[in-house]
Design a protein around this nucleic acid. Sequence first.
DNA 1: GAGTGGTCTAGACCACGCT
DNA 2: GCGTGGTCTAGACCACTCC
Lengths: 261, 261
Amino acid sequence: MAERTGDIFGDGPVALPRGGPLYLQLKRWIEAAIERGAIRPGDALPSERDLAQRADVSRVTVRKAMQQLVREGVLVQRHGSGTFVAPETRRVEQSLSQLTSFTEDMARRGMAVRAEWLDRGLYPPSPEETVILGLGSGERVARIARLRLTGDTPLAIERASLAAGILADPEAVGDSLYSHLERSGARPVRALQRIRAAHIAEADALLLQVPAGSAGLHIERISYLATGRVIEFTRSIYRGDTYDFVAELRLGDASNGTGQP
Amino acid sequence: MAERTGDIFGDGPVALPRGGPLYLQLKRWIEAAIERGAIRPGDALPSERDLAQRADVSRVTVRKAMQQLVREGVLVQRHGSGTFVAPETRRVEQSLSQLTSFTEDMARRGMAVRAEWLDRGLYPPSPEETVILGLGSGERVARIARLRLTGDTPLAIERASLAAGILADPEAVGDSLYSHLERSGARPVRALQRIRAAHIAEADALLLQVPAGSAGLHIERISYLATGRVIEFTRSIYRGDTYDFVAELRLGDASNGTGQP
DNA sequence: GAGTGGTCTAGACCACGCT
DNA sequence: GCGTGGTCTAGACCACTCC
């Protein structure tokens, strides 16, 4: 199969579905081709110049259509190589009612996950960290930043902050922060999470291997010891295309809508 | 204050921060101006042609920078009128552990929310609805689609499906689906939600008044009666810039990571 | 009608990958 | 070296808003 591309689109002119701006016509045309299986995940599209000529539009217009599909995760572009239909990604599920660590969670599913360290160290705290963690004056903060991956696919960036009094030696943390905390008797028993959709900023997008501005989940988590003390404050960015969070809801009374104690 | 714009940017040339592609330099320059308060929410930016001339770049390049900021929700463009710094939006919080109805939830917060009907009626079910709702052969499905708003700001699109046997007359549903169900003794007591980040498609983006492709939350909810029967299957799209979901987590045992019974 | 954003073009050069 | 995507230009016309 030398040139799948040639077979699929033919070599002749491209007939666009009429209606609306050209770049949207072209976008719909590409979506339709994928929809009906004419091109499949992993397949290459014709080059931008080729498509432009055959659809009788300018290359700028072709790019505008493709860029939208790239941002939506439908296509993948590789500089110097070509444009491809994005491979299907399996979604990962995570519970929103059980407090589990990422590592333990994935191990339970038999998924090969790993983490790369982005940062580990003791720092002077930001005002926000001082307030949330209830730091004493002069107390430093331990920061741990990790890139979570399954195989070669990045899943999420996790940036955790803990009081230096609780995690004196960030370098000693192994694969799982929670099991490290458990060994020192400081494993959290509950946590509050805030979840929102967000656009992934350029720097994070690079780490997560998605186009800048892609949809992702921004999660803030504050964890508590049984004593009620805050021990961990974590901000994470999850790729939008690989994560499903699952929550179980129960009939609530009006007294407490926020989950706050 | 005739022309805030003129004062803020001056009339002279624009000095871009060096480094990287021009459109990113320009994007950073605009972000910086907003950051330091030189232009504030609601203020107009110079026109694209004006900025292009003063920054000595082409209009296409100006547009590329602005488009990114529009997608991120930083700027708002109004055809024929101009480009403005987006007004700040207050975020709405919603619990992920208490099963409450949208209407009741907001009323408790004293927020003026309302809904517009997008669709109400009985339909032949899709295969998915038949399976999830456990429909009998020939049984139809009641569909309710609403646009949720606070004041004039759209918040979310909700599309619910119920067995016709449970909701025989969709037209009779008032402001709150749950209180309607309660009256017929069919209020759900628990639900499973799946949450993911997603790009908002063009049609939905129009309803939600955000640019197509913006980040949003896609939520699927399946609600159960005390008997265990599924009574509601809802898909919702929430704007990413106006919603925070809050979940409380408790230390989980390994037996049950999904919240599934 | 003047000014704004929205679309589109033809052509150029650069940076990257592959062979 | 050749083909690919990435950036950028100058100029054009359309559609919309506001005066």
